[in-house]
Each structure stands twice: as structure tokens, then as C-alpha cells.
Design a protein around this nucleic acid. Structure first.
Lengths: 194, 194
DNA sequence: CGTGGAGTTGAATACGATCAACACCGGTGG
DNA sequence: CCACCGGTGTTGATCGTATTCAACTCCACG
């Protein structure tokens, strides 16, 4: 059994698909394995593919003017990852994406994906719902970053993504939260004495 | 001519619609005027409507535990504003939305809007493209907040939304950028002596 | 073993927040 | 017409939080 069944399960939870539709979708997704540390995409490359993560965990990050990494997203199993939903083919990637752990992906090229959206209403609907959820989550993250202290943001992350917090190295979590590794270490120290 | 023609123009730039489709859409949108300072939505209310802004400017903000406002979005003409795309009807609003200037809106109830998406493929497609753009913009804002100093964020905002920067009071801009009004004032002072 | 990356801890520093006072309008009512 | 008022924005002084730099420990991995 290919990895596709995981995506299939994911999709079935979000919309109703016929067998023909799955048959159309399956060949668009190619399995790909990444070892921890391997890149899925490097900033500056032309964007050609996105991916659905079946096992493992990836991170998506940007490198600022001073050379510092800033993680904008973790993508564990059953998440999508890529430059962005619906970037024009051929645009250059702003983000780098690599594997935090050994991971398995189903990769798709952005052009085929666009066709899937146009041909399969159920897929388009599911995709739209995903985008909406994503927008809400991103808005909350923005509001959180604006209003909460580093410690509160850490608490919030633990509550919202407890599994991710345990899996990724602490310095990456710090990068995601927008604090230095030292600060996160001190936050954890303070929390533990309670 | 009603305000609907502005929305019509907006939609025509993003997808192709038949006259029947416009005829279906038009009655879903009701004009509404807001004076500066008036609320479109208050945090805690049940969410029933979203809006397309035809003239003026609104702001969407959240009030944190300490009672401070944090603006997550400005919505000038030709922007959509509301609790979030596709919130379940009846959920309670987290955000307050009010008018920065005297404004004209086309409001729609979320249930009818959902039906429009389901019935009109062109509308659904346009909506999806909008969501994608929105996601990219939000991601950039997140990356920016993580990586850039207050001054850099201000520069970035000026570059990206020059018209908004001139229209809204400075203290609201500060709230959007996540800095105190005093800090923004000092940033502007430093920039001007160059 | 030994090497290097991750995490912790400490000290000095920087950036932005807060508190407070004041200047500058734009509007309102005497 | 002018005097007053509240809200906006500016400036200064102080404070707090997080960053930076540096040293050190602890493992995991060769």
C-alpha cells in the first residue's frame, strides 16, 4: 500500500470523493523520503512543487538580512507544506523548507495541483476549507505575537501544538516563537519552578 | 446606481461572471453606511455578517487581557472584512470591527455567502484566489514581525500600504505594527532627520 | 574517547514600554 | 470671536524584558 492512503484518509474526512476522483488524484502525488536535515526547497529556487507530509516533520523558514533563521511553520504528518498556496509557477522561493526528522512526503507539482482544483469540485471545496482554517490560525498567531509576552506565546504554543513542542529541538521552537534560544531556556526554567 | 457596481468591478477583475450570476449575487449584498467610530461588529457578539468595503476604511482589532487594543487588519475600499472567512454561523466574535473613517459597506450574511460559494463556481474560484493571496500576505506579516525591528516593520508597511499609512491615525498604525505610539513617534523622528 | 551541537547560566547591553509633562490642533459652546 | 476642551502626537526620564556575548555542561555520535 502506498503512502497515498494517508492522504486519502485525510481527504475523506473533509469531503466526499468518488473512486474516479481518487483515481484522478493519486497519480498527481509522488512519494518522496527525506532524511533529517535534507531540503525540500531552498530559498531562491524556482517553486515547482508542494507536499503533503505523511510521516515526520518539516520546517519552513526565512533567512533575514542578518542571516538569522525564522521559522514560520512546522509541518508534521497530515500537514501541507510549500512556498504558499497557489504561487505562480516559476516564482522564486522566499522560504527554505527542510526536514526536522526523517520524513515521508507526497509531492505534487503546482500546475497539476491547479488542475485538480479546477476539475474536482470536492477537492476544491476541501482545499478552500483548509485555506480558511489556515487564515484563521495565522490571524490568531499575528494577534498573539502582537499582544502576548514571550512566556505567554510559549504557553499558547504548548496548548495548541503539544505534540510538536515535544518533537522539535528547543532552538527551533525559539525561532518559531520569535525569541532567542537563551530566552526560551529561561522561560522553561521559570515555569518548572511552580 | 447602487454600491454593488463597485463589487461587480472588483469581481470582474478576478473571474468571469454571467449576468445571471451577478443577478444571483446582487441581492445577497446590502448597503450600509457607517460613521467614523461606529461599530460593524463587537467582540462577543454572535457573528452573522461579513462586509465588502466600497468607500472609507475599517479596522479589525482584538483586546488583550490587559485591555489593550491590537489591530490585526485595516480594510480600506475594495477589501473584505469580517470575523474570518468561513466561521461557523453563531460563533462569538473575537474581534471588534469599527470604522476609522465614514465608510460604505456591502454586508452579507455568512449563510447566504456560503451558498453563493457553493452555487457559483466562478465566485468560489475568486474567493479561493483571494484566500490564497491573503495567506501569503499573512505569512509575510508573521515573518516580518519575527525578524524585523520596529523601524523596519514601519518601513515595510509604508512600502506595502502607502495609502493606508497616510489615512489612519498614527496611534492605530502603532497598534498594527505592535509598538507603542511613543515608539512610532520616535521612529518617525529618526527617519525624518536623513 | 573526543568532538561538536544543544541547552543552560551569568553579565552586560539594547530596545522598546511605561509614566509623565507638554505642545498642537479642531471642534464646541459661551 | 474667542476660550476651553479632549484627543493626538511629541519629548524626556526611567524601567523592564529580551538580546547578545561568553563560558560551561551534557550528550549523541563519530
Amino acid at each position: 500500500m502506498s503512502e497515498f492512503h494517508k492522504l486519502r484518509t485525510y481527504l475523506e474526512r473533509r469531503a466526499t470523493f468518488t473512486e474516479e476522483e481518487f483515481a484522478f488524484l493519486e497519480p498527481l502525488f509522488l512519494p518522496r523520503a527525506l532524511r533529517a536535515g535534507e531540503f525540500f526547497q531552498r530559498a531562491g529556487d524556482a517553486v515547482t512543487h508542494g507536499a503533503f507530509v505523511t510521516t515526520g516533520c518539516l520546517r519552513k523558514y526565512i533567512i533575514d538580512a542578518k542571516g538569522k533563521e525564522h521559522i514560520v511553520q512546522f509541518a508534521p504528518e497530515n500537514w501541507w507544506v510549500g512556498e504558499g498556496p497557489g504561487v505562480a509557477p516559476g516564482t522564486l522561493a522566499q522560504y527554505s523548507i527542510d526536514a526536522v526528522e526523517d520524513s515521508n512526503l507526497l509531492i505534487f507539482d503546482t500546475v497539476s495541483h491547479q488542475r485538480a482544483i479546477e476539475h474536482l469540485p470536492a477537492y476544491a471545496a476541501g482545499f478552500r476549507v483548509g485555506l480558511q482554517r489556515d487564515a484563521v490560525a495565522k490571524e490568531q498567531r499575528i494577534a498573539n505575537t502582537l499582544s502576548a509576552s514571550a512566556e505567554d506565546r510559549y504557553e499558547e504554543f504548548l496548548k495548541q501544538y503539544p505534540s510538536i513542542a515535544l518533537r522539535v529541538p528547543q532552538f527551533m521552537l525559539a525561532s518559531y516563537l520569535g525569541v532567542s534560544p537563551e530566552t526560551l531556556s529561561r522561560i522553561r526554567k521559570n515555569r518548572s519552578r511552580k
